[in-house]
Structures are given as structure tokens and as C-alpha cells.
Design a binder for these strands. Structure first.
Lengths: 253, 253
DNA sequence: CTGTTAAAATGGTTGGATCATTATACGTCG
DNA sequence: CGACGTATAATGATCCAACCATTTTAACAG
């Protein structure tokens, strides 16, 4: 059971009524202050010794509250003079970490994640094809040119190419205009990437294949053909997944 | 920046090298013990006073570590004798909470979430139509019958109907065989539900419409028509979103 | 002006004491 | 004997006061 969801879910009119847990009250108050905009991203919370007096709690209790807020991705704590708790908004990062935990916990497998990634990439790309303005397409063209340069450089620029590839897909996600797709896309990508790094050795043929994929995807987006753009994106991811899966099972043989 | 992702992402071979933070070391050790299976779900960690001696840290430091693990969804702490830190695996719940934070933080809007939900529901249902075995269909049929009974009961059973509706969609997600879809589906649902409760008053006509939707979706799944199943599911969600959006803007005038 | 050093602010850690909660064992009374 | 209250002990929650470690800033020496 989550300690408290954003709104009282389930229609149940009662809360768990757990008194105790003073630090939770501190967490709630600070969280509200942040969410209400009273503290903006980048603002510093008062020092621990000040807040200790404000809330009338011991420093230990206050620090437990700060640990929770830090883990939620709402604040970041730095050391030294002028240090302290700074408001951040790294919620997406904590979700990425949670997905990583699920993977390591075997609640989901890499295969599952790969399947999901195909779908997300397909949907996102299809939507992008529907909604892309000329300026958006220009961004993609620019990234494609960058990628082409790295292809010319051969496998020595493999990593640089992958970096541009990531930027390309991020740019596509951004075109949808819906930040959830950007979040989900990054979350999945960041958790799959380490496996690519481990099991996908640099390879000239795959470098070129990848580039051709991007080129075709861009063409489909340009022409506004959502269905084809989606299909191409799915196949693009699928190819990589397929190859990685093979490589992943070879070594263990 | 996330304190540490599941694997060293980005290919950067270095860590941030922050010494300090003894509690982080404790967090890492306990987390590893849990992820490695040394502690299974339901197991109890030693008491604070025991762990204080094991790790050679003060109780305050240890408690900060436990707070972090609790917030991560890895443990749950209960009070009283026989209380203590119990290993749980409520990672999905923390992600649901994080999505709620994003909503409240205005990093994403309800409209964005609704769009995403249409896509997820469409994909999931299409996949279910592809993969449903006879036993799976039987479960859906049973749920549909349950729903029908509540429809007959009229709007007084509105909430009961919604409950079955949720179960139906969850069952569909389960048919995909991919736990990510279940997670994502629940995460989105649980964050949207409160808005439905607030802005969608019970209504006989909508109750029947909803039931008809489920019936059609089941039929599509039964016949294995993935495309139609996906379309129906999308439209099903879309209709509700559309209506809610209208109602949501009326009161504000 | 530059490099070094001292001071101060701030988070991090410690130890010990006490309070609050709760399962369990015990005992009392019907 | 059984139901109900009560004492007990284990465990987390909180507090307090001191001290350590890190880092910025200012003062200072050359």
C-alpha cells in the first residue's frame, strides 16, 4: 500500500489513521510547499538547524524526513557552507531507478522490456509523423546529418553514433508534444542501454543498418505517413532486440 | 542525477566518488541482500538495535538508511513487538506515487495522461486478442457477466460496476503475459481514477454504454481480431475521457 | 595579484536516554 | 474452563547534546 496517493483513490473515504511518524508530517508539509510552488526548483530549504526550530522536531526526525524527500526526487542535499537541501524535480529519475530495480528484482525481464520498447517507439514515432511541423523535421534532418558523419567515421565512432541515435529518438518523442512519452521513452531507454553496451559490440554492418533505419523513419515522418513511421520504428527496435538476444544467449551457451 | 542506476549507465566508467554518506553504504548493502534473494519477500530484517551492531553505525544513521529503503518500496516497517523491517516488493507502488507527483507538479497534465492511457489500452487489448487462450476468454466472460448484473442494478451499483470494469481491464492486461503492461496499466489507471470519481457522476446511460463497450471488446478478443480489439479499447477510453474533459471544464465556467 | 591558511556554516555521525506501540503471556473473574 | 482485562517486553519513534567532515569564503602572507 502506497503511503498516500496524490488524491484519495478507490473512493474509500478513510485514511489509515496511523498517528505516529512525525517525520511523515514533516515530509507532507515540505512536499506540499514544493508542489504548491512556494518553493521553486533551485530554491534552498532552510538549514536543518533552522527547520528543527520551525517544525519543533529533533534534528534526527527532520533528517529522516529529508531522506524521504531526497529519495522521492524532490530535493537534493549538498554539503558544506552554502550547502543544504535544494529543491529539484528529478521525479523522472527516481522512476527510472525504480524500473531498474524491477529488472534486477526479476519482476520484469529484459524480453518484456524490449517488447514494451517496440510498442512505445512505434506509437511515439507514428504520433510524431502525424504532428511534426517543418521545424521539427528540420531538427531530425540535422541529427541525421550528424549521424551520417559518424557512420562515415566507421566503428571507431560507434559510441558517438549511438549518442546521436538516442538524441534522434528523443527528438521524435518530443514532437508528440506529450511529456509522458518523453519520460517513458527515456526511462525504458536508460534501462536497456546498459545491455546494449554489454551485448552489442561495435559492428560496421549494424552501424549502417541503423543509419538506414533512421533515414527511412525520417522520410516517413516527413511525408506524414504515421502507419509507416510506426512500423519502421518498431522494426528498427525489433532488429536490435533480435540481434542482442542472440548475442546474449551465446556466451552463456 | 540518480544516485546509482541498476547498471553503470552511459558507459561512463566512473562514479561520483562521494565518500561521506555512510547510510548510503548501508542502503546499498541491504538492497543487494534483498535483490540477491538473500532476503525474500516477507522476511524480516534484524532489529534496529541488532543492525546497529552489525554495521557499526549509530541508530540514527541506520534509520536514515531504512527510510530510504522504505521509500524505494523495498521494505515496510511495522511498530511494536514482532514489528520491524519486512521485505516487500512494492516498487510498482512507488512508481504510481511518482507519477502522481508528476501530475501534481504539472510536469504532465491530465490530458497528456489520458492520451497515453488510450494508447496503452489499445496496445494491451490488441495484444490480448492475439494471445488469449480459451481460459483467458473464460475469465473475461465471467467478469462481463458480473458487470451485467451490476448494470441491471442501475446507478446504485455504479461503483461496483466500475470495480468490475477495472478488473476486466486488468485481466486483459494480464493476458498479454508481459508484466510491464500490467504495471503501466495500473499506474495510469490509479492516477486517473480519482478524476473519474470527481468529475464523472453516476449515470445510467454511461453505465450501459460502458457495458456495451466491454461486450464488444470481449467479442473482438474472442475472435482474435487484434486490430478491432485495439480500436474498440481506444474508443472506449476516448469516450470517457471526452466526457470527463467536458464535465471538468463546466464547473469552472 | 596569487597562493595559503583560518574561520564559519552546513550536513553527517555518534551515544545514550526516553516515549509509544503492539504482540504475547499471565492472571482474574464470571 | 473460557472471556476479558492487564502487565510485560520487544521494537520502532523521538529527543538531546555533542562532535566530525566538508566546503565556501574571507583574511592574510608573500
Amino acid at each position: 500500500m502506497p503511503k498516500h496517493s496524490g488524491l484519495t483513490s478507490k473512493g474509500a473515504p478513510f485514511r489509515v489513521a496511523r498517528q505516529s511518524r512525525i517525520f511523515q508530517d514533516v515530509v507532507d508539509q515540505i512536499q506540499e510547499a514544493i508542489l504548491s510552488g512556494e518553493f521553486q526548483r533551485g530554491d534552498m530549504l532552510p538549514s536543518e538547524r533552522e527547520m528543527r526550530e520551525i517544525f519543533h522536531v529533533s534534528r534526527g526526525t527532520l533528517r529522516e524526513a529529508l531522506r524521504v524527500l531526497e529519495q522521492k526526487g524532490l530535493i537534493e542535499i549538498r554539503l558544506g557552507v552554502n550547502g543544504g537541501a535544494m529543491v529539484t524535480a528529478a521525479i523522472a529519475e527516481t522512476m527510472t531507478e525504480s524500473l531498474g530495480l524491477m529488472l534486477r528484482f526479476r519482476k520484469i525481464s529484459l524480453d518484456h522490456l524490449q517488447e514494451f520498447r517496440e510498442d512505445i517507439e512505434g506509437i511515439v514515432t507514428a504520433k510524431a509523423a502525424d504532428r511534426a511541423a517543418e521545424a521539427d523535421v528540420a531538427v531530425l534532418r540535422s541529427l541525421l546529418a550528424e549521424a551520417e558523419a559518424h557512420v562515415a567515421g566507421g566503428i571507431s565512432e560507434w559510441r558517438a553514433f549511438l549518442n546521436v541515435d538516442k538524441k534522434f529518438h528523443q527528438a521524435v518523442a518530443r514532437i508528440t508534444g506529450n511529456p509522458i512519452y518523453i519520460f517513458i521513452h527515456n526511462m525504458v531507454h536508460d534501462n536497456i542501454q546498459p545491455y546494449y553496451d554489454t551485448f552489442l559490440p561495435p559492428d560496421q554492418e549494424r552501424l549502417q543498418q541503423n543509419f538506414r533505419d533512421l533515414k527511412e523513419i525520417l522520410a516517413a515522418v516527413e511525408s506524414g505517413d504515421a502507419d509507416q513511421a510506426g512500423d519502421l520504428a518498431r522494426k528498427h527496435i525489433w532488429r536490435f532486440n533480435e540481434y542482442m538476444t542472440k548475442r546474449r544467449q551465446e556466451p552463456q551457451g
